[in-house]
């Protein structure tokens, strides 16, 4: 099946209206809702991961402190990286479903509706 009815450059609404959409307040809100969530969060989890890498490298004594039985801080820290990854994935998806999808859908419907 070739559903390639919209090759780049000949979008449903023409280049001009893509620029209008890009400058519209609705799209501005969508972009802001996406970027203000995804960008700082990316910086945060990469910093959190690098902290873990650096502590493993240069704070061996601290990381080796036993917490519970044979479980030490390094191990707990490692498991925490797993948990934070699961948590961030869930958090982003919830944000996307409530804050991004409805806005994106509204713009898409309007744009594709215009064309037909």
């Amino acid at each position: 099946m070739y559903t390639d009815s919209t090759p780049p450059g000949e979008g449903t609404s023409g280049t001009e209206s893509y620029r209008e959409v890009q400058e519209s307040p609705e799209f501005g809100e969508l972009r802001h809702a996406y970027r203000s969530f995804a960008f700082p969060l990316t910086v945060a989890f990469i910093t959190w991961y690098l902290l873990y890498v650096l502590l493993s490298n240069y704070a061996g004594g601290f990381m080796g402190t036993k917490v519970l039985g044979n479980l030490n801080i390094a191990f707990v820290f490692g498991i925490a990286q797993f948990l934070s990854t699961f948590l961030i994935a869930w958090w982003y998806s919830r944000h996307a479903a409530t804050k991004l999808d409805p806005r994106a859908e509204a713009i898409k419907t309007r744009l594709e509706g215009d064309a037909s």
Partner: peptide
């Protein structure tokens, strides 16, 4: 113009294949 097209499409799914 192309960036507008890419940005709008990538965030909204308009004209997605």
């Amino acid at each position: 113009g192309k960036y507008a097209e890419l940005e709008v499409r990538s965030l909204t799914g308009t004209g997605a294949h």
